[in-house]
Simulated assay, not measured.
Amino acid sequence: MFTTLLVIASIYTAVTFLAGAIIGSALASLGAWRIVGRMRAELADAAWQLAHDPLTGLYNRNGLRTAHAAFAAAHPGQPVVAVLIDLDRFKEINDDHGHSTGDEVLIEVADRLTPIAAFYGGDIARHAGDEYAALFPVRQHGISQLADDLLSAIAAPIEVQADTGPVVVALTASIGIAVVDSTDPFEEVALHRADTAMYHAKRGGRNQHVLYTPGMTMPPSEARRGLRLRDLHQQRGVTA
């Protein structure tokens, strides 16, 4: 997909060059210029869709991978902070209030994380479902301060509209953090280590961050205790 983004960027550059040639030509027609303008707009839109999550407007995995590649090219050998954020018990929001309410929560969380990413000079993405991933350069701000800012932004109550009316949702998050070399593979090293640390945060009680340390491995799987919340609701509906 990163290759696809490069192809689109190359085509966009070629179209832009063609547009300049057309403008500079005395024989250029208004119709030709309109065609070139439409092509530029369509290519720009295609590139945006390939790199962004349609719900939140954040980068998607491909967009964050591209941002990582750009940082590695500009700053080879420099450390980078990889962050993986998983919303705790987000499934219960969907079960209790519906997926449209869940989508509102995801959008609000994205809106809260965006200025934090900008403040720390990083990039953030909706990684998958209720997971967000981010990359930050190592600066004077400590990792603990960054993690605390992320946790505080998510924990502030969120008022959303459910089918039954307005509801206030309280969330926490489990955050995994890994400091890696900018040239380390993005998926296999940076995100993998952040993911491992995130699971330790979740197994350790949630609503916290854990920093990856050398030799850290995935914690043992947590066995499900009792019925899922959705199953309990269905049981109550049958017995009511």
Rank of each mutant, 00 (worst) to 15 (best):
Gln208His: 10
Ala173Tyr: 01
Ile11Ala: 14
Ala223Gln: 12
Ser29Asn: 10
Gly204Glu: 11
Ala201Met: 07
Leu211Asn: 06
Glu188Arg: 12
Pro76Asp: 07
Pro214Thr: 13
Gly129Pro: 03
Ala223Arg: 11
Gly237Arg: 07
Ser29Arg: 11
Ala170Gln: 11
Arg203Asn: 12
Ala51Asp: 12
Met198Glu: 10
Arg225Ser: 14
Val167Gly: 00
Gly176Pro: 02
Gln161Val: 15
Thr213Ile: 08
His200Phe: 08
Val168His: 08
Tyr199Ser: 05
Pro157Tyr: 06
Thr239Gly: 08
Arg224Glu: 14
Ser100Pro: 09
Phe71Ser: 09
Asp86Cys: 07
Arg225Ile: 11
Asp148His: 13
Ala156Ile: 12
Phe136Pro: 00
Arg89His: 06
Leu106Thr: 03
Gly24Lys: 04
Pro79Cys: 01
His97Ser: 05
His52Trp: 11
Val169Asp: 00
Ala178Cys: 06
Ala44Val: 07
Pro115Trp: 09
Phe17Arg: 12
Arg112Met: 04
Ala69Tyr: 08
Ala70Leu: 15
Ala134Gly: 02
Leu135His: 00
Phe136Gln: 02
Ser144Leu: 10
Pro79Asn: 08
Ile175Ala: 09
Arg139Trp: 04
Gly98Phe: 01
Met198Lys: 09
Leu64Phe: 01
Gly121Leu: 04
Glu222Leu: 12
Ser174Leu: 09
Phe90Asn: 03
Glu188Gly: 10
Gly63Met: 01
Glu222Trp: 07
Val167Phe: 00
Asp53His: 02
His75Lys: 10
Glu188Leu: 12
Val15Met: 06
Asp195Glu: 05
Gly204His: 10
Glu131Asp: 06
Pro54His: 08
Met216Arg: 01
Met198Arg: 06
Pro220Cys: 06
Thr217His: 11
Gly165Leu: 13
Tyr132Leu: 03
Arg206Ser: 11
Ser182Phe: 03
Leu27Asn: 13
Phe71Ala: 14
Ile35His: 10
Leu146Tyr: 07
Val168Cys: 06
Arg89Met: 02
Arg206Ile: 09
Ala240Pro: 10
Leu229Ile: 02
Ala14Pro: 08
Pro76Gln: 07
Arg230Val: 00
Asp123Trp: 05
Val238Lys: 12
Asp130Ile: 01
Leu227Ile: 02
Leu113Arg: 01
Leu171Arg: 05
Ala32Thr: 15
Arg34Leu: 15
Ser25Met: 02
Gln208Asn: 12
Val105His: 06
Lys202Tyr: 09
Gly24Cys: 07
Val160Asp: 05
Ala51Gln: 13
Arg236Phe: 06
Leu113Ser: 01
Ala190Thr: 03
Val238His: 14
Gly20Thr: 04
Leu50Cys: 15
Ala41Glu: 15
Ala190Tyr: 05
Gly63Gln: 01
Asn94His: 04
Ala72Asp: 11
Ser10Glu: 10
Thr3Gln: 14
Tyr59His: 02
Ile154Lys: 09
Gly226Pro: 00
Met39Glu: 12
Leu58Met: 01
Ile158Gly: 04
Gly176Met: 02
Gly205Val: 11
His200Leu: 07
Thr101Asp: 05
Gly215Ile: 03
Asp53Gln: 03
Arg224Tyr: 09
His68Ser: 14
Ala70Arg: 13
His68Asp: 12
Glu187Gly: 07
Pro219Val: 05
Val189Trp: 07
Thr66Gln: 14
Asp123Ala: 05
Val238Tyr: 12
Thr4Gly: 13
Val168Glu: 09
Ser10Gln: 09
Glu104Pro: 08
Ile35Thr: 13
Gly165Asp: 11
Gly121Val: 01
Gln235Leu: 15
His192Asp: 06
Val105Arg: 01
Arg65His: 15
